[in-house]
Amino acid sequence: MNRHNEMETVFLSVPENESFARVVIAAFAVQMSPTVSEIADIKTAVSEAVTNAIVHGYEGTRGMVTLRAVIDGTVLSVEVTDQGRGISNVAQAMEPFYTTHPEQERSGMGFAVMQTFMDEVNVTSTPGSGTTVRMCKRIAPEARH
């Protein structure tokens, strides 16, 4: 039978919730029997997306961040959504080393990390109303322990 499961978690955009989001996605994905390396990939990508929502989406303000995940067979899809300020130029924001906060030593590598560790990354954003990052990763059945 094709495995199917869904979950949604909503939390405040405070930095403490970056580790909370990583624990949640790891706990949800574990039913796919991922390898240690796959779990690390997923946690890292989610950490980047949630950090972006907190640092950029809700810069200087607070709002809610939604972490949604769907398991469909061997594919894990993850969405991280904020209702923050949005990104006016998504292509530019996704360029490696592009950062609006060099003074905070932000590396500008967040999207590059997501693209390295996940199979697909899509970003939709509307200035003034928020950003959604959609990512998916195939958890290869042969990789299962």
Partner: peptide, 13 residues
Amino acid sequence: QFMDSSGIGVILG
């Protein structure tokens, strides 16, 4: 136990 791109900024700095 964990590092993401925030660590890149700290280490490069």
